[in-house]
Design a protein around this nucleic acid. Sequence first.
DNA 1: TATTGTTATACTCTATAACTATA
DNA 2: TATAGTTATAGAGTATAACAATA
Lengths: 168, 168
Amino acid sequence: MSTEQQTGHDGGPAPRSRPRGAAFLLSQVGAQAATRFAERISGLGVLPSDVGLLRMIAGRPGRSQQSLAEELGVVPSRVVSLVDGLERKGLVERQRNPQDRRNYALHLTAEGTLVMSKMRELATAHEDEICAALDDDQRAQLTALLEAIAAQQGLTSGVHPGYRKAPW
Amino acid sequence: MSTEQQTGHDGGPAPRSRPRGAAFLLSQVGAQAATRFAERISGLGVLPSDVGLLRMIAGRPGRSQQSLAEELGVVPSRVVSLVDGLERKGLVERQRNPQDRRNYALHLTAEGTLVMSKMRELATAHEDEICAALDDDQRAQLTALLEAIAAQQGLTSGVHPGYRKAPW
DNA sequence: TATTGTTATACTCTATAACTATA
DNA sequence: TATAGTTATAGAGTATAACAATA
């Protein structure tokens, strides 16, 4: 083939791009962690966005869709479709609130609770996979550094910024 | 209002969710870094996906769309629309290759080179913003830890996994 | 009038597949 | 027949805005 020079099968000395800084590495490794987690939980039939919602409902049973929308920073109509999905999968129930029939009280079903516990196992395995290159000390160091950044950046809650408009 | 208990304006002791592990923190902080970077470069009129492409073209001028598609792990038709955007913005030129008129040789324009240098300034500021909570030693530690993970996970190149299917 | 939830709609991003031009 | 690039199309995901029911 006469176009080898341009095909990207670089026979050359790999034009090494300059070393990436911590911020790029964070974005790169963070995206990798998110993608691998998504693959891992796909066996349970749930998406990453489902996981956050399940956790929020489990943490405060009976909460309304409105409160989820506020905490996630998304529009209420999006919560409708997310909860629709979870209800269709039989993981969450909408119960009418007799005192104020405008809103729903959201609860996990037994199946939803089961999925939550399976998710915790998967999360542990995921953690081990992502940190496979580190020993226990390094893992603790990394966690401490990331917590410091998260706090300073205002990511105090367990809410993933991915619910907001993705940049890619 | 009689529904205060359910509206998420938690008057309670904040049902503290369990501490997040390193993998979740990575995904959370990484997404934050990506979002802030996207906001920062939006003033230049480019998207995060544009940045990677510009860098790849700058690093090996004359390369083809095909080679970009392979390295990014995306389908060729996607590179078409990405390059379309960069060409429309006047940052990249498609030059016909006289030896093999099937492919293009991609080059940065003068404007494209200018945008690249502005991007490098923004990247430095971005780096400082994301690592604001850390001192120089901690920043070096973090970089080393992330590089170890990236290498072990096969993220050796400077290619961002975000070009592939986003999980959110 | 205000609030909760829903529906209808449109927009963006991305992949698939068929197609053109060139080799 | 194979390769580089393009176009047409469809599917997901998400926001906006109008709407219904309830307060």
